[in-house]
Design a protein around this nucleic acid. Structure first.
Lengths: 128, 128
DNA sequence: CTGGATCCACACGGATACTG
DNA sequence: CAGTATCCGTGTGGATCCAG
């Protein structure tokens, strides 16, 4: 994909923050991370708990998290096969780094929603 | 969009964290936030600095950040119009909450990349 | 200079069916 | 149970042209 040739160069592209932000921004990745943060979970358990996720996405995200060394996959050769996903030490530190964001979200979401309403109201006035 | 009817209900949907995570995960939002964190910037300045972004995306993200009350738009009626974007107090606190993530990224990106290489190597062996 | 509007390609992601 | 493979609709985002 010639990522080195014409990449934007700037402030943005290969910046570590950006890459991690992309991971964190993933619709499901962090959610999964937080779910298995304290106890391992099986594939369908995750599927059921999250519920909004398709099995395609789940398996895809799990694979990419495993690839990043953030979670660990452990297949147990039982009769109908059991697979257990658990967080790695590395993944745990990432989960920790996400915590401030959760705090911020819980504290400030209301204010964000207010801002949105104000903004929308102002725009509506323009229209009228 | 009947968001309340059949929404996944679970752990995921209307959770504040999720909503903020989506914002943070936005490819450009946080980047912009960090860029104007200490000094206001004009539209084209941002455009040039980020460089990978299209004008459509930039204007779109700026609008959504403004709507969320995270940045402030200030139009100055000069000859060819000048617009200055600056961070709000609310936006500043979000930027602060993102810092741990930046730290984590800078500290651990290498390890993540290593994990990726190991993973890929292992898979390649499977193929061969 | 700062965008809005439009057109369009392509990747993302859901639904479904099938396998080990 | 834990996935993979396929088909396919849709949203996302780039390119371009135009306007205040």
């Amino acid at each position: 994909m010639k990522a080195s040739a014409k990449t934007p160069n700037a402030y943005s592209a290969q910046c570590p923050t950006r890459q991690i932000l992309d991971r964190v921004g993933d619709k499901w990745a962090v959610l999964i991370l937080l779910l298995i943060r304290h106890e391992p979970m099986r594939f369908n358990a995750l599927r059921r708990t999250i519920e909004g996720i398709s099995q395609k996405m789940l398996s895809q995200v799990l694979k990419s998290l495993e690839r990043d060394g953030l979670i660990k996959r452990r297949a147990i050769a039982t009769v109908p096969v059991t697979v257990e996903y658990s967080i790695t030490p590395l993944g745990a530190t990432l989960a920790d780094a996400v915590d401030p964001l959760r705090d911020w979200a819980e504290k400030n979401l209301k204010e964000v929603l207010n801002a949105q309403r104000r903004y929308d109201a102002a725009r509506k006035d323009m229209a009228a």
